[in-house]
């Protein structure tokens, strides 16, 4: 028996504590979300019915099960508010991901072209904003974009505009905030694939007479597709459920689904509808999450 196999046994035991923790605090809660999404809103504490009471015997539990209904889901389908929120989230997530790719790719490409000793520093510079508070970075933009903020002051001083432009509470501000916050998530996986690429490949294409453009589109870009996929998923999935950025930067006339969920939960105190909104959002995310899980697994376990 090799040493590697001997190690595997105790290493498996290490899984027990994190396994139980994630099962209890990540998996089980989805069961409660599902159950409450089938409940009725009530003026009570907690604000939903039925409440399962396992001390009341089997009949009471049966009655509680019978009281569950799909009413909240019917509401989601019939009320335009929800359908429009989901659609808006999908559009915002798709458009933002496309913009992020357009901006992030040249930056990652530039990083991969730097001399070796500069690459580590460039990478550090991209990672630092990822670590710094995301709320603070959004707030920094409010400073700049507000009515008498720096941007309008500069534009007025340069006589580009004659009156202050409304930037805050617009879709442009929201897209700016999203792109700004998620840029490191796009750059890092792209850089990781681009930096690993063998320069001999582009050299070969060049020797065979390909123009720089042709080399890029026929060699570099296709080889970087795994990075493109990883970056796109890392951005698309969380943006779909984004709450803080649209809440602070976008106008109030149309909402993303994260805002709708927040409103139902905190303002309307309608927990069952909020839970149903979450379940449908999860269903929308099943395919991208599965893709992301596969990518993550392949990437992390390649070294095994």
């Amino acid at each position: 028996m090799s040493a590697r196999r001997i190690f595997a046994g105790p290493a498996r035991l290490a899984a027990i504590a994190p396994y139980l923790w994630m099962a209890l605090f990540f998996l089980v809660p989805f069961g409660f979300v599902l159950k409450i999404s089938l409940s009725q809103t009530a003026v009570a504490q907690p604000p939903y019915l039925p409440v399962f009471d396992f001390t009341q015997g089997l009949a009471a539990i049966k009655a509680a099960f019978a009281a569950l209904s799909l009413d909240n889901y019917r509401l989601l389908v019939s009320d335009n508010l929800y359908v429009l929120s989901y659609l808006r989230s999908l559009v915002v997530a798709a458009v933002s991901t496309a913009i992020l790719l357009l901006i992030g790719y040249p930056i990652a490409y530039g990083m991969a072209r730097l001399p070796q000793r500069w690459q580590g520093i460039a990478m550090m510079l991209v990672i630092v904003p990822f670590w710094t508070s995301f709320l603070i970075r959004i707030y920094a933009w409010i400073n700049i974009l507000q009515h008498d903020g720096l941007l309008n002051q500069i534009l007025l001083a340069l006589h580009v505009v004659s009156a202050p432009v409304v930037w805050l509470s617009t879709d442009s501000a929201m897209y700016l905030g999203i792109v700004y916050s998620y840029l490191p998530f796009m750059i890092l996986p792209l850089y990781a694939t681009l930096a690993k690429m063998d320069p001999a490949l582009t050299e070969a294409a060049n020797d065979l007479g390909a123009s720089p453009q042709a080399t890029f589109w026929l060699v570099t870009f296709p080889l970087s597709l795994p990075g493109v996929g990883a970056g796109a998923l890392l951005c698309f999935i969380p943006i779909l459920g984004e709450f803080v950025i649209p809440d602070l930067l976008a106008g109030s006339d149309s909402m993303m689904i994260g805002q709708t969920l927040w409103l139902e939960f905190f303002t309307n105190k309608d927990w069952p509808v909020a839970a149903a909104v979450a379940v449908v959002l999860l269903v929308l995310l099943v395919v991208p999450l599965a893709l992301y899980d596969r990518l993550q697994r392949r990437q992390l376990e390649a070294g095994r």
Binding site: F26, V28, V33, G241, F243, G258, A275, A278, L281
Partner: peptide, 15 residues
């Protein structure tokens, strides 16, 4: 790592 925070937050609260 990528799960929208509103979902994680809501489900933990319900638990």
């Amino acid at each position: 790592l990528v799960m929208p925070e509103v979902i994680t937050g809501l489900s933990l609260l319900l638990l």
